[in-house]
Write a protein that binds this DNA or RNA. Sequence first.
DNA 1: GACAAAATGTAGAACGTTCTCCATATAACG
DNA 2: CGTTATATGGAGAACGTTCTACATTTTGTC
Lengths: 355, 355
Amino acid sequence: MPIEEKQKPQRNDRVTIRTVATHAGVSVAAVSKVMRNAYGVSDALRARVTDAIEALAYRPSRAARGLRGRSFTIGVLLIDIRNPFLPEVIAGVNGVLAPSHYQAMIGVSDARVQLETSLIESMIDYKMDGLVLVAPRLPSEILAKFAVQIPIVAVGYHDASATAFDTVNADDQRGAEIAVEALLACGYRDIEMLSLGERQGHAVSVVRQREIGFRRAMQRGGLGSSPAISKIPIASPKREEAMRRFLSRNDRPRAVFCWSDLDAITLLSLAMEMGARVPEDLAVIGYDNSSTAALGLVNLASIDQSGRELGQIATRALISRIEGRTASEHIFQIPSLVSRNSLTRSGNSTDTKQG
Amino acid sequence: MPIEEKQKPQRNDRVTIRTVATHAGVSVAAVSKVMRNAYGVSDALRARVTDAIEALAYRPSRAARGLRGRSFTIGVLLIDIRNPFLPEVIAGVNGVLAPSHYQAMIGVSDARVQLETSLIESMIDYKMDGLVLVAPRLPSEILAKFAVQIPIVAVGYHDASATAFDTVNADDQRGAEIAVEALLACGYRDIEMLSLGERQGHAVSVVRQREIGFRRAMQRGGLGSSPAISKIPIASPKREEAMRRFLSRNDRPRAVFCWSDLDAITLLSLAMEMGARVPEDLAVIGYDNSSTAALGLVNLASIDQSGRELGQIATRALISRIEGRTASEHIFQIPSLVSRNSLTRSGNSTDTKQG
DNA sequence: GACAAAATGTAGAACGTTCTCCATATAACG
DNA sequence: CGTTATATGGAGAACGTTCTACATTTTGTC
């Protein structure tokens, strides 16, 4: 018998549940029972099976599992991977999932409704156990339709009336109010918001919520019935152009609230280039408290909504939903102000919790 | 005449390949053939089947597909989601995948070998069609073992001798050389590198490659036989501490090359805080040309390795491997210098391609 | 026309799990 | 000892695809 050199160790060497069963001298069903620790397994059987699993380094096929039962995977859908807020959410999700037997698979939709839909469908077709959607673009009815097929928790999606899925949000209205209150407290009266220019402004989006909060706080502060909001395009050549135009307006406001640090930081940069001093000529406050904002070079005051915490909460909610909860939950977190030099010279990284 | 009307073929409303077959009045196999556009389908059959697919909005189950054949999904493994270089790679991957029938699912390993392994295993267990690993931590032998089970392309992993998988890299040695050459061209002689303090320094890692390039260029420039390299820890409290210590050294070098923009930008920030002028007192050049580096506020000279392009190339390589290629490929890109104010006052965003 | 070759469609066996019955073996009870 | 409950293990049918092997029809050739 010649020693046949297996030059092509084909995939037939896969260890399946059957291999384990044979090795342990039990039935396939028994192994499955042990894996799912179902009722009706003696200690002796359990020991033999776990030994075999150990010895063979057996891993159940997720594909096969998905076909029949649970896949122990949860899908995460990100609208964008560049906004530094989103990695924070992922970190939160992974943190909660790490000690469990679940795993996260991430899809990036690049803010395209088309792609978002097909990614969600794929995750359903993979028989994932649940979905965390971060700032989805899809309308609520569509999400509800998906939610019939798979447990869904939406983060950064304001629809407290949704009954088919859960939502987890920072209170974006309140966040914007806090920003305005901070500007007012510094004595600024001439305040404008730089918002996101979207095609159609979803009422559910965080951006619109922040606009609502901005308006309310401005009116409450006695600053006109329709406070100024400028829309900045998201794509790159037009974006800087719009900001420059804003900065060189001769009725340019004294203070600005930006919907996101991403915009605030670019604004700060352009302001410097154009010779405007911050905060002496222009005070700026952003949103997200990204790590870039905290840099000494940037020193941008910002609203902190703790993406990490949102991710954690959303994941816990999802798991409880997977495990049977059906009544929908709508969770709110209160964001906080992080004051820095872009707001006022003395405001040196003081983390001020506000309700 | 068998009048066996199906009592309840599907209790839930899922549209399966069987539903389509019944609706089109053909066999399941025929539908499958059309889906995979396999040999032996007449135009008439194809038309009937595609009509039925359309009418029923049929989507094949990815789980079931994975169990038998291909799943049309490729897995992407990211070492970290915070380094802004990585989203660029994702953008490249998604760009190439978008027009195809493939889809990307992303896993984030957080630089944990443990998690990295289990994520790769999961992707294999999902029967994904191939894997793009971005800056994996695992040793080459392990990757080779995985590569037997699934096509693999590694990005940012220098192992040109690997035969089981492909690699796609920017030439990190050359990149570091370009950085040193740029510093030399500005007249600086007193140059040090700020590198990453890892537990064990993988020779395959981009960081080690940059160190090699740094050393070579320094020696070639006649600057000592063992140029100085300082290691900076990656975790946050120690990191800033080490940088501050570096900045306040009284033999602090005149110019610094940082392994990554992430470090360079923090360094710039701390330098400002500590009253060092850039570039008059300290010249800095980073790596990755992240969007933050390009900000006017930051104005960091950097080496551009176009993560997007790397992602595109890697994806194309992976697809060709999935479609049958077995000989391994090792692709190199040459990075380029983006000169900015942190290097020299006049160096104003001149993109200088260098070989 | 006869016969081979090519084209087209189908049946049915995988793929690796889960999970619902069922068949025992053992314990409990009168 | 029967008889019944209970604990334990196993058989085998799904799940929704892919794909080989084969049956049937059409086309081509002499």
